[in-house]
Design a protein around this nucleic acid. Structure first.
Lengths: 223, 223
DNA sequence: CTGCATCCGCTTCGATACTG
DNA sequence: CAGTATCGAAGCGGATGCAG
């Protein structure tokens, strides 16, 4: 990409991550390391040569690392470096900003629940669940729905609908993303009628506790 | 821009703000509304037809608003809508991520202090200064330097060096941006030897108090 | 199958010139 | 000052080919 040639942290950042597809590749790798073909699956429409080129650029920028797997699986895996992983903060804000757009123009793109799985995976990755669960929950956002299974050893996420979830959370995309990125508390979301939690009070309380562990609200600073 | 056609808040956001120059235009407008030519000045290298087209796209996306000024100044001003202003959170994270890049490749782009003025302006825009100041400070980052004038009615920022600043803050770009976006406290920055505050203790304490009002540390959540 | 490289038509960008 | 018009260059998207 042509550089903006400006001595400014934003311009410098965009020199590296401003190219088409670059942030979406990072988005994919934020879930877990992936192979070339896995990435293509998650990025419908990308030309293979472009993916090759982007991966090279991201490797040069020390955002992505290419690792050759040992012989049994003669293949290469791409994963984020620490600097690449730091982009989760950028993507979190991009997602928060973009979520309302999903509610506005809900239905012309291919709809699958992959995006919800992604956010749930990121949200619950390192959240402690001791003393919580076992319980199951479903998150419904328009046509998308995923399942959560909370156990003492962590939260597992599935794109399949759960049989009989203890709690069903229903929200629009904006507030689902806000909940899953810690921008809003469950109580607050309910107070605004922005989310519904259907289920027995005890289970809802447990989910509240779980969601509260995702993180603090966004920085209120004016920068 | 061609749409990613994916039902995902990140992809939808990038459909709108992922085009070349788009976020830099928003960056300019975050300081204050600007006219076409003001924008060109802040975006060296942009072609005039591209700026025209981007402004139109951003207007359609309800990020930018075009306002015709009344007759005396027969001109148009571009300013951010609320949705556009909300992009400050995205740009804050982009800046935090990109700041270390400035320290790595310090010196091949045109260097001016405009970028520091921008961050300081954003940082101190709505910060209360009652009981603080009057005092002056200088922030030095490599070849760039700006001046701060703290008074009871607010903080004014200048790209000119102050004559005899009460305090001189010296830091690398990474930590200067971290300080000005509230990602790190002054005490913490000094403890890491990431920033120096030179001046009498009383004045430094006042600057500490000022910087502490910028905002809380970044959200620690793992999304 | 995975991980590319090459070719080609199309879109977007960038530089410059020009106009109300 | 605030754009529009033009045109070559670069980047993108899709198809295809191919080695390991």
């Amino acid at each position: 990409m042509r550089s903006y040639a400006q001595f400014c942290p934003i311009a410098r950042a965009l020199d590296v991550i401003g190219e088409r597809w670059a942030l979406l590749i990072v988005r994919e790798l934020l879930i877990h390391p992936a192979r070339f073909t896995d990435l293509r699956r998650g990025l419908p429409g990308i030309a293979s040569n472009l993916l090759t080129e982007r991966l090279r650029t991201l490797e040069e920028a020390v955002i992505v690392e290419r690792t050759e797997l040992p012989p049994p699986a003669a293949s290469a895996v791409y994963q984020l470096t620490e600097r690449g992983f730091a982009l989760r903060h950028v993507l979190r804000e991009v997602a928060r900003w973009g979520a309302p757009l999903l509610d506005e123009r809900p239905n012309d793109d291919a709809v699958d629940s992959h995006w919800l799985v992604r956010f749930a995976t990121m949200a619950f990755r390192d959240v402690p669940t001791a003393e919580l669960g076992p319980l199951s929950a479903s998150i419904r956002v328009g046509p998308s729905a995923i399942s959560l299974f909370v156990a003492a050893n962590g939260v597992s996420i599935s794109a399949q609908p759960a049989a009989n979830p203890n709690v069903v959370i229903t929200a629009d995309a904006e507030h689902a993303v806000a909940l899953l990125t810690g921008a809003i508390s469950p109580a607050n979301a309910r107070a605004q009628a922005a989310a519904r939690f259907d289920g027995p009070g005890g289970a809802v309380a447990q989910l509240d506790a779980l969601l509260a562990r995702i993180g603090a609200p966004p920085t209120p600073n004016p920068s």
